[in-house]
């Protein structure tokens, strides 16, 4: 089962310590063989919307910043509970904030 973990932007700025801990966490997941891909995302980005034949591209940032993604991790595990356990560890490192976990189909 693959799960996409998405991290919402946090209010606080990341510091050196957080980066070091995140690095160790990513290494641990890689060593455990469960991390397929991970990365941070630029704030804002572009919004592409379609309406009928019309495609509109809008530059960010957007009002609903809380809904945006700051980073992601694609993991491969056996059960949803394993994904939750990994997300739990991740949240412990990054402090207050939110992540979502969604199963990836296909």
């Amino acid at each position: 089962m693959r799960f996409l973990m998405i991290q919402k932007p946090a209010d606080t700025q990341p510091d050196e310590k957080l980066f070091a801990e995140m690095g160790a966490f990513v290494e641990e997941l890689t060593a455990a063989g469960v991390l397929l891909a991970t990365g941070g995302l630029e704030p804002g980005g572009l919004l592409v919307s379609s309406h009928g034949d019309e495609i509109t591209v809008t530059d960010g940032p957007f009002a609903e910043a809380k809904e945006a993604a700051a980073g992601f991790a694609l993991i491969e595990v056996g059960t949803k509970e394993e994904a939750i356990e990994l997300a739990r560890r991740f949240r412990k490192i990054v402090g207050d904030g939110e992540s979502t976990i969604q199963q990836v189909f296909g």
Partner: peptide, 11 residues
């Protein structure tokens, strides 16, 4: 039980 299983698989 499921959480324990998950922790066990990982640890």
């Amino acid at each position: 039980r499921r959480t324990i299983d998950a922790v066990w698989k990982l640890e």
